[in-house]
Amino acid sequence: MRTTIFRVAATLWANRKARAGLSILFVFAAVAVLAPLLAPYSPTATNFARSAPASWSHPLGTTGSGQDALSQLLYGTRISLFVGFGAGLAATIVAMLVGVVAGYARGPIEVILGFATNLFLVIPGLPLMIVLAAYLPTRGVGTILVVVSVTGWAWGARVLRSQTATLAAREFVAAARLAGEGIWRIVWHEIVPNMVSLLAASFFGASTAAVLAEAGLEFLGLGNPSTISWGTMLFWAQNSNALLTGQWALLVAPGLCIALLASAMSLVNFGIDAIGNPRLRER
């Protein structure tokens, strides 16, 4: 399994698009980690002029409540990455469990899991998130993470399920049964390691969706508005009519970051596709 992961990583790095995506992700990660060093001020300090335009001391201006926008943007990277990758990971784990079991099992389990997957696929995601987020008792990053994971696993589960079914029909799986392997061993040692690139694709796909969903929910005011994140920056910018005061940077900067992060993840996914589908493999 570990060697497979290394192999996939090496192949990814060899692909132009994936390399671009991974480089951008790396920069974002570095910013998230180094935010305290990079940010000129504390993101929560409110002792600046309110709604100030861009200047040397505040390159992106200040918010309606007098905070430095650049510092907020840099710190905001943390939440986006955390929710993006956290929810992506959680959704992928759920997708893997559901998909692999549904793809390998026969009988009622297969039917029930298949039904659940299809149900979550047909329910429109955003309304479900809004309903969930509105009714959950607490508000905050944790809630958003749960909401995004719950709504984000179904696509991956369906893909992994059909791949599992394909692999389960391969001769080496029948051969492993004849060699006396038990069901869990077959699943974990024979089937799952052959799906690493799909799992990675599922992960980056879910993470992209999570980044967008997190920003969306906070923009709609369904998060905790005092968190520092790109979504809440947009929420406050909208609330304080930033465009009317000519502070377009307050809207554009977080928006661009969200778009860039989501694109980077998609680029990685293009690379993974190219590995799985030799027709797309670039030279």
Binding site: E171, F172, A175, A176, L178, N194
Partner: peptide, 27 residues
């Protein structure tokens, strides 16, 4: 059973020693 397709009959990710070894351990 000896399978028809020696390409599809072995998991590409395992060393062949592992593959044969699992059958020895199990049986």
């Amino acid at each position: 059973m000896v399978f028809q397709d020696p390409y599809a009959g072995l998991n590409p990710l395992h060393s062949v020693g592992y593959t044969v070894g699992r059958a020895i351990r199990n049986h």
